[in-house]
Amino acid sequence: MLKDITIGQYFPGHSVLHRLDPRMKILLTIGYIVMLFTVSNPLGLGVGILFLIFAYAISKIPPKMITKSLKPVIPIIIFTTLLNMFFVKGDPLVDWWIFHISRQGLLTAVVMTIRIICLIAGTSLLTYTTSPITLTDGLERLMKPLKKIHFPVHELSMMMTIALRFIPTLIEETDKIMNAQKARGADLESGGVIQRAKALVPILIPLFVSAFRRADELALAMECRCYRGDVGRTRMKQLHYSWQDGVAAAVTVLCIGMVVVVNIFAPVVF
């Protein structure tokens, strides 16, 4: 049952988006998010939506994955929509009892909803098309300049790699411990929230003990393979920007440019 949990939402494939350099994808995603929130005009927002649809189309990720990624944030979307709808002051549209909806409020609510949906769908596209390990790799290399201010970039990425490596191992272990405790009569499935939380204690303690033991052995094995932090370390897989990265960057910059132009010359609507 626990084995069904997948961490990261990588969707293996061979599209152009899958093959892009992870660094470029991270940068472009950040650019896209900034663009979404600086847009001040329906035309600009339209460009943003079209860009996303285009990106999903060439990634060959099934569209139903968008709804899947949106599901967990639906409460947040509803909350911000309601908040914007009822509390933004302006020309009144509905004025009934304690409910006041203004034209501006309705507009902001709609725009905010679209922005959040685009934001989630956009960042999900990054994790759909990039495996967690490539993503870690890309992040490490992007953050390299931070080393100058003694930010532990390599250590962080090593931690993430080891965490990713041991998630399946520890899940398997949890499964085993749960079965072992059940075999001794532990009741994990009935009772209220507090009772169930209490039932987790005999699972978590052995899990922690074993995780520490594993950590100890892993550290020893790493030492034996001459690990000494990132002192003089090279990497087998080098990242190279290809012409495809250039094209992707050009398209995105073009979109952002269009939005900027629209922002300047078209009337500010929101």
Binding site: P132, I133, T161, I162, L164, R165, R214, E217, L218, A221, M222, R225, C226, Y227, R228, R233, T234, R235, M236, K237
Partner: peptide, 18 residues
């Protein structure tokens, strides 16, 4: 408890990278 990387070939490369 002695494999570090999430991909087989990356793990084999680990010592050489170090």
């Amino acid at each position: 408890n002695q494999l570090v990387a999430t991909i087989v070939e990356e793990d084999v490369a680990f010592a050489l990278e170090n």
